[in-house]
Write a protein that binds this DNA or RNA. Sequence first.
DNA 1: TTTAGCACTCGTTATTGCAGAGTGCTAACA
DNA 2: TGTTAGCACTCTGCAATAACGAGTGCTAAA
Lengths: 344, 344
Amino acid sequence: MLLTDRQVLILQVIVDDFIRTAQPVGSRSLSKKEEISFSSATIRNEMADLEELGFIEKTHTSSGRIPSEKGYRYYVDHLLLPQQLDSSDILTVKSIFAERIYELEKIVQKSAKILSEMTSYTSIVLGPAVKDNKLRKLQIVPLNQDTAIAIIVTDTGHVENRMFHFPASVDPGDVEKMVNILNERLAGVPLVDLHANIYKEVAALLRQHIKNYDLLLGTISETLTMPASEKVFFGGKTNMLNQPEFNDIDKIRNLMTMIEHEDGISRLIRKNPKGISVRIGRENNNIAMENCSLITASYSMGEEKLGTIAILGPTRMEYSRVISLLQFISTDLSKVLTELYQNK
Amino acid sequence: MLLTDRQVLILQVIVDDFIRTAQPVGSRSLSKKEEISFSSATIRNEMADLEELGFIEKTHTSSGRIPSEKGYRYYVDHLLLPQQLDSSDILTVKSIFAERIYELEKIVQKSAKILSEMTSYTSIVLGPAVKDNKLRKLQIVPLNQDTAIAIIVTDTGHVENRMFHFPASVDPGDVEKMVNILNERLAGVPLVDLHANIYKEVAALLRQHIKNYDLLLGTISETLTMPASEKVFFGGKTNMLNQPEFNDIDKIRNLMTMIEHEDGISRLIRKNPKGISVRIGRENNNIAMENCSLITASYSMGEEKLGTIAILGPTRMEYSRVISLLQFISTDLSKVLTELYQNK
DNA sequence: TTTAGCACTCGTTATTGCAGAGTGCTAACA
DNA sequence: TGTTAGCACTCTGCAATAACGAGTGCTAAA
C-alpha cells in the first residue's frame, strides 16, 4: 500500500492540475508535462494502480482521472510543501490591522471579509466565546416605570445588553444599591458563571440590605443568564456560486441553505482543535458539504484559544495557499489581540 | 386604450393562472375555465389585442402568453380585490407578538423570519433608524489606562457602544464629571444631533469645570458621531432558489450577490413612501431585480415612521396575499411598538 | 520495465424527425 | 358585426442517430 515515488509524482501532478483546471486529467496531457519523462502508456498503468488503491477516480469509463477524497487527503498530508505567501498577499493581510480598530468584533469581521476576497472562497470566522469573558461592569438603565436595560461590559470590551421588566413595586434606590453590590462582588467573574455566583455568594448579602430582593434578583439573574453564543461572521457567502462544480442548482441550494442556517455551520467549525485542521468532503459528516472542504485555524489571546477562522471551498481547493494564508492570519490576529487586550 | 370588460377578464385570468403555475397560458386552457364562456378563437383575438397594447407577451412565436410588467402593473392597480387573510395566517402573525419580547430589534427580526416562512419569498426588514432615537443615557466604562467604552442608551432601549482611546494624562475623575454634565444636558436629544449639540450647548459649560476638556471632548464627541445606519434584517435569503424562474445560475448569482451586498438592497427599500408600495421588475431600477418584484410597507410608532418591512419575490408573485399580509403585519407591528414605547 | 499501437468506451455535439401545444387567419355562422 | 370552427403554420421538447474526440485497457514488441 506504500506508493512508489513515481506514483506519488503522478498523484501530485494530477491533484495540482485538477485544482487548477477543474477538468479530469488524462494520461496524454500528463505525459506532456515537463516534470514527467515517461510515456502516456506507462502513466496509464500507474493510474490504474492509483485508482485501485483509491487515490483517484474516473468520472466515467473513458474519462481522465480526478482525485478522490483519499487522494486529496494524501496530498494534504504528504505533498504539501509549506509555500511562501507572496508579498502582495502579506501586504493585504497586514492591511486588516493597519487601521486603528479596537473592537475585537470589528477586527474579526474585517478578517473574514479580506480572507474571502483573497481566496474567492467563503470565509467563516467564529468570534470569541463571550461566555468566557469576565465581567467588568454591570449597569442598569431604567427606561420607564417597569422597564430597564441591563448592560454588561466585559474585560475585552464586549457589550451585551438585554431589556427586562420588573414589578412596579420595586424601589429605584434599591435597584441602584443592588447593582453596586453586584458589581463589587462579581467583577472578574466569567459570564458563564454569573448566574451560579449570584446565588452562591451574593444572595445572602443582598438579603440583608434590600427588601424584596428576591423579586428583583430573580429577574436580573435570569437576564444575566446569557444564551449569547459565539457570533459567526461570514465573508463571500456567494463566492461558491462562481465555482464550476456548483453549476448545479440543487448543490447550490443545499450548500446555501446550510450556510444560511448558522447553527449548522458553526457546529461544524466549533469542534475543531487548536492549530490548523483540514476536513475534506465527507470528513465533515454533512451531506451539504459533500463537495466541499473546510480548513480551520484557531486564534488565541495569550495561551487561551479565543475563536476559529475558517475557509470553506470546493474539495478542489487551493489547499497550499489557503493553509499558508490561514496560518499567517491567525498568528497575526493572535498577536494583535494579545497586545491589545492582554496587558490591561 | 381603455380595456373592454372581456379583455380585463382575460388579463385577470392569465395573470392569476401564470402566478399559480409559472407556465405560459394558452387560449385553449383559458377557454376551459368556468369564468370564461367564449371560445378559444375569440380568446386568441382578444389576446392579440392585449399583446398589441403591451399587457401580455409571448415567450416564442407559438407559445401561450405571460403577463408583461405592464400587465402586472394593471393587475396590481385595478384587479386586486382586497383579499381576506385566512385565519391560520392571522394566528401565525399574532404569534410574533405572543412571546414577551421587549427589544425592538428582536421583534423586527422575528417578523422577518415569520414573514419569509409564510410566503416562501425573501423578506427584508429595515430596522428603525437609530439616529432619530433620543439619548437616554451616556455611560463610559474604562477598560484600562487609556481605553474605555462609550455606551449610549436610547429611549427605545437601543444600545450602541464604541471603544475609544484617550490620552493617558486625562484624570478619571474628570471623565466622570464630564459624563455627568453630558447626561444632564443631552438627555432627550436625538442621536443625530448629539455632535452639534455638544459644541453648541455643552462645550462652554465643560470649559469651566474641567481642565483639558477639549482633549477629552474631541475624542468623545467623535465617538458619539454615529455612522450607525438602519440595520437590515433578512428572512429566507435562499428562498428565491426554489422559484422556478431562478433555475438559471446567472440570475441566481446576480440576485444573491445583490442581496448579500446590503447597501444595495437597503437603498432600494429606504426611499419608499409611507404605506404599501409595489415595485415590479424594472420599476426597481436595478438589473439584478429584473425578474423580481418588491413590495414594501412602512411601520411606525405613533405618527412617526420607524422602518420598512418588505417582501422580495419573483414578478410572478402572489401580490394579493403578500399585500394583505404586509398590511396586516405592519399595522400590528405599529400597534405593538406604539403601546410598548410610546407611553414611556 | 517501458512503450507503441489499436480496439473500444463514453461524453459531447449536431442533426433529424416527430408529437404536442399554441397561434393567426379565413370563412362560415348567428 | 361579433363569434366560432377549421386548418395551416410555428415553435418547443424529446428521442434517436451519427460523428468526433478524448481517454482507457490490453497486447505485443523493444
